[in-house]
Nucleic acid binder design. Structure first.
Length: 569
RNA sequence: UGCCCGGUAGCUCAGUGGCAGAGCAGGUGACUGUUAAUCACUUGGUCGCUGGUUCGAUCCCAGCCCGGGCAGCCA
């Protein structure tokens, strides 16, 4: 967005922007209904005589006394001499929408680049807004590619040298500038695209100078991570975040179509024993001089919640409550783990989907997980085709064949005992020895999914000693109804289980894990009153996104990654 | 947290115990319905930081900072 300082720096003195800037809200003495100056206006130019065009737009930020008007120029207005421009009468009306989109009906609506590219026929009038990806000059005109994020592909705009601001602005436009174009959509005379736009007016909304970090050439992902505020404007990250959005939608669609109820489980929790790793503490106590107990310990009874509180590591226990009432539920929200994990597939803040189903056993749980994963892949294949093809071309050549292969085949299922057997007999020299009772290591999981089964595989019935207290104990007394879904390239993407619904067995398990029944009285109550067999799992949203896009680092599928030592932006 | 690799122009990277290099980006010019356009010329440097060795360190050594990979923990 334009700021006053940017408006003055490095510009010729008599640019239209500078003149139009004087038509600020203050000059007109605008006041909103509450007496405050509005932060946004729409100004309609009446005197210019042309079809009324929306002219304004964004005002001040509330403290700065100088309003900045970013305007949508009409060609006839732009050509006004600067002196007269400042005297043009305006009719001003307050707008309440988010900027340019609140244009009145008399203004030409904005067309997204995606829609323009898929136009069925030529258009006499089109209005585009977006950011310059590249400019190529020809004799007498320039090619300017605009992208507005609506699609991977941008649209080519032809800006003729006869445009009034060609020499002063258009020919100096750099990659990254935000611009606005009015013109015609016509069949392209060149190769490589069906449509292009011949500009009748071309306005720079916000210049980007030569220091704009994104170039037309490829950048490393490490560099782009350092400019996370600009990387969504790159091809790769635009595609990643479009897919992320679509995937979030598909998740809701999957569950809603099946009658699952969306539950918002708390983000702040006071149970510190959920069994899923280190927690972030939430506190309002003074870190330097906290209140102390008579014994000299920090007195958390004086903290905000009257006890220790944390950010959630899982919504499962609360989801079980709701499944015990609404039958089938799911959560989808942020999750926090304070582990010092420095890998390409761990983040301190990530999003997790946790369905929980009453009257459901491990078998049903595994079946749902498979249907769920396949639904997400199928949805992305169908609705994000262009973006996935981009990933297949530049990120992972095998992506599409792998996704299609996963869609076509049933997932393999393999008990932990069978897995140990397979790993022990395959003749490999494992870095970590394979032994019943030990965790499957990364190398083991990868071997199962990538080499032995060559497809997603669900490993189930793990040794009781490896898993948390709430998992249902099998009849053998040694294993629990746990399941992990392993996928090629990522490893574990889902972890879940059938929950222990028998009160006495659960109490024994809690005692064994040294958990206090007092802290979990409500969890035990679920087994006292109308208990049912139930099951659920957790899917790491970012890991699913990694699998679907082929992007190999979790930091590149989340807008602003939080990892140990890093919480920028 | 452990092990390993890296840090040189805005970006991607070469390089050397003795004047700091290329491609791209930026600038100037030429050419052109171009597609990461092309061609010529050109601006641009705390060689991560601190200390040490040395006549001399971007280079060798130590410590630190930052980034990445792998492992553990997990989703």
């Amino acid at each position: 967005m334009w700021t006053p300082s940017q408006a003055h720096e490095g510009r010729p003195p008599c640019r239209p922007q500078t003149q139009w800037k004087t038509h600020s809200a203050q000059r007109f003495g605008l006041r909103g209904r509450d007496g405050a100056r509005p932060s946004m206006y729409e100004v309609r130019n009446v005197a210019a005589g042309a079809a009324p065009g929306l002219r304004v737009v964004r005002g001040r930020d509330g403290t700065n006394s100088t309003a900045v008007a970013i305007w949508l120029p009409h060609p006839r207005v732009v050509r006004q001499p600067d002196e007269s421009a400042s005297r043009l009468p305006f009719r001003v009306c307050l707008g309440d929408g988010p900027g340019l989109r609140s244009a009145p009906k008399t203004s030409m609506p904005r067309t997204l680049v995606k829609a323009a590219l898929h136009a069925a026929s030529a258009m006499d009038a089109i209005h585009l807004q977006g950011w310059v990806r590249t400019r190529r000059d020809a004799k007498g005109f320039s090619f300017i590619e605009i992208n507005d994020g609506s699609s991977l592909k941008g649209i080519q705009v032809i800006a003729d040298a006869s445009l009034p601001n060609y020499a002063t602005e258009i020919a100096r436009t750099h990659t990254g500038a935000s611009i606005e174009v009015h013109g015609k959509l016509v069949p392209s005379k060149g190769q490589g695209q069906q449509w292009e736009v011949v500009a009748e007016s071309f306005t720079i909304i916000g210049e980007a100078d030569a220091t704009y970090p994104l170039q037309k050439k490829g950048h490393t992902l490490e560099f782009l991570r350092e400019i996370a505020h600009l990387r969504p404007r790159s091809n790769l990250f635009g595609a990643v975040f479009r897919v992320r959005s679509r995937l979030a939608f598909a998740i809701h669609q999957f569950f809603q179509e099946r009658g699952f109820v969306y539950v918002h489980t708390p983000i702040i929790t006071a149970s510190d024993c959920e069994g899923a790793g280190e927690l972030f503490r939430v506190t309002t106590l003074d870190p330097v001089r906290p209140p102390l107990t008579p014994e000299g310990a920090v007195d958390f009874a004086k903290d905000f919640f009257g006890k220790k509180a944390y950010l959630t590591v899982s919504g499962q226990l609360e989801a079980e409550i709701f499944a015990s009432a609404l039958s089938n539920v799911y959560t989808f929200g942020p999750t926090f783990r304070a582990e010092n994990s420095n890998t390409s597939r761990h983040a301190a803040e990530f999003w997790m989907i946790e369905p929980e189903m009453a009257f459901c056993d491990l078998e049903g749980n595994m079946t749902l997980a498979e249907q769920f994963v396949k639904h997400l892949i199928r949805d992305a294949r169908e609705h994000c085709a262009a973006d996935l093809e981009f990933f297949a071309k530049f990120v992972d050549k095998e992506l599409l064949t792998r996704l299609d292969f996963v869609l076509e085949r049933p997932f393999q299922r393999c008990s932990y005992a069978e897995a140990i057997d397979v790993l022990g007999k395959c003749g490999r020299n494992w870095e970590h020895p394979v032994k019943w009772g030990d965790n499957l290591q990364s190398e083991h999981e990868r071997f199962l999914a990538e080499e032995h089964f060559k497809c997603p595989v669900t490993v189930y019935n793990y040794p009781r000693t490896l898993k948390p207290f709430y998992m249902r104990v099998n009849d053998d007394g040694k294993t629990v109804c746990a399941m992990d879904l392993l996928v090629p390239g990522i490893g574990e993407i889902i972890g879940g289980s059938q929950r222990e619904e028998r009160l006495e067995v659960l109490r024994e398990a809690m005692a064994h894990h040294q958990l206090s029944e007092k802290d979990y009285w409500w969890y035990l109550d679920l087994r006292r009153f109308g208990t049912v067999p139930h099951a659920g799992f957790g899917l790491g949203f970012e890991r699913m996104l990694m699998f679907i896009t082929g992007v190999s680092n979790i930091r590149d599928v989340i807008p602003f990654a939080r990892t140990p030592g890093s919480a920028d932006f």
